[in-house]
Amino acid sequence: MSVHDHQKHARTNLKVGVITASDSRSPETDESGKLIRTLLEAAGHLVAYYEIIPDDGERISAALVNNLPNLDAIIVNGGTGITARDGTTEVVKSVIDKELEGFGELFRMLSFQEIGSAAMMSGAVAGVRHGKFVAAIPGSPDACRLAMEKLLIPELGHIAYLLSL
């Protein structure tokens, strides 16, 4: 079956969680979290969970593990860089069963086209945990828009369908 045939079976109305990993954002200043939620809802999905969590690996891990069973996917934004406080990439890798290497590769390629060589510092990652999709993307609004519009919104329903087989 071709990818186009599979996409005909893409699931709609997914229940998705959004986590903003940040020490400095609040619900009022979380521009990236709001953007992700808006784009998901515009695509017909339900944002069933949203939380801002400090850059703390144990808290991010617990939020993923505890909330994912009730959702189809979780998207984490923030904490994917190279500073000492950035640990989201490592947390996501520690909780997933299977990494989708192509996600990070494609995100960095698309990002390179927009921002140049600084794209190499992105730790964007995605994978599967117990049949549910998890992605971690940078926290800047431009990076979130890129990941959502070019990768996640077009494929979330297809991914959920494949994970249900």
Rank of each mutant, 00 (worst) to 15 (best):
G102R: 07
N66S: 15
R25E: 00
G79N: 05
K98H: 13
A84H: 14
E51V: 15
R85D: 06
D23K: 03
D56W: 00
T38E: 15
D56V: 08
L46C: 13
H45V: 06
D56T: 03
N66T: 09
N67E: 12
V47C: 11
V47H: 10
G44D: 08
E101R: 15
I96M: 08
H45L: 06
L100G: 00
A42G: 12
G44W: 06
A48R: 15
V65Y: 11
N67T: 09
K98C: 07
A63S: 12
I53L: 04
L106I: 04
T83H: 02
N70L: 12
T83P: 00
S61Q: 13
F112A: 02
I96T: 11
T80F: 01
A63Y: 00
G81R: 07
E51F: 13
T89Y: 02
A63R: 03
K93C: 09
G104C: 10
S26T: 14
L46V: 14
T80I: 02
E31C: 14
D56F: 00
L40D: 01
L110M: 10
N66R: 14
D55G: 08
D97P: 05
I52V: 01
K93Y: 09
G78R: 04
Q113Y: 10
A43P: 07
N67P: 06
N67F: 03
V76N: 03
G33T: 08
I60W: 06
V65M: 06
E99A: 02
G81D: 00
I75A: 02
G87N: 14
I60K: 05
V92Q: 05
I96L: 06
E51P: 14
S32Q: 05
R37A: 15
A62S: 14
Q113V: 11
R37I: 11
L64C: 08
L110G: 08
S32E: 02
T88V: 06
G78S: 01
P54A: 04
A63M: 00
I53T: 03
S26R: 11
R59V: 02
A43Q: 13
L35Y: 08
F107R: 09
E99N: 03
L100D: 02
L39A: 15
I36G: 15
G116P: 01
I115S: 06
S94W: 10
S94N: 09
I53K: 05
L64Y: 05
F103P: 00
P54D: 01
K34W: 04
K98D: 07
H45N: 07
T88C: 03
V47F: 08
V47Y: 07
E114L: 14
A48I: 14
R108F: 02
S24Y: 05
S26E: 08
S32K: 11
P69T: 05
G116T: 06
E114S: 15
Y50V: 11
K34R: 13
V47P: 15
